[in-house]
C-alpha cells in the first residue's frame, strides 16, 4: 500500500540530488510560426504605416519607429498586444529595448514559453 509512496520519496530525493528539474515543456513554437503571428499582430494594429492607404511591407528587419512610424506610446501598445497574443509577460526593461520585428521574434522564441 505504501510502496508507491516510498517510491515517490526515493524519486524525490534523487531529484533533489540532481538539482532543479523543469517540469514544464519548453515553447515548441517554430520561429516561422512566431514571426507570422507577430506580423499579423502588427498588421491588425491600426496605427502603423502598414495600415495606411499605401501600406509599407512588414519584414523581419522592420523597425517599429523608422519603418512603421510608431512612437514610444504606440510601441508600448503593440507590446501589450503581443503579450496578449502569446499569453506572455514582457518585462519593461526588455520591452524598452525591443525596436524591431526580428528582435521581438527572437525574444519570444528564446526567453518565454509562449503559446
Amino acid at each position: 500500500m505504501f510502496r508507491s509512496l516510498l517510491r515517490a520519496n526515493v524519486a524525490r530525493s534523487a531529484m533533489i540530488s540532481q538539482g532543479p528539474v523543469r517540469f514544464y515543456s519548453p515553447s515548441n513554437l517554430s520561429k516561422t510560426a512566431i514571426s507570422s503571428r507577430v506580423i499579423d499582430v502588427i498588421k491588425s494594429f491600426n496605427k502603423t504605416d502598414a495600415s495606411s492607404s499605401n501600406p509599407t511591407e512588414i519584414t523581419m528587419e522592420s523597425s517599429f519607429k523608422k519603418d512603421l512610424g510608431l512612437d514610444s506610446l504606440d510601441t508600448v501598445e503593440l507590446i501589450v498586444a503581443m503579450e496578449e497574443e502569446f499569453s506572455i509577460e514582457i518585462p519593461d526593461k526588455v520591452a524598452d529595448e525591443l525596436t524591431s520585428v526580428a528582435q521581438t521574434v527572437d525574444y519570444i522564441k528564446d526567453h518565454t514559453d509562449a503559446s
Binding site: S72, L73, V76, I79, V80, D92, A95, D96
Partner: peptide, 14 residues
C-alpha cells in the same frame, strides 16, 4: 524616468 512613464502607460493600457 522615461521607462517609468512608459511602464505606467502600459499599466493604463492593460
Amino acid at each position: 524616468t522615461r521607462r517609468q512613464v512608459l511602464a505606467l502607460y502600459k499599466q493604463f493600457i492593460k
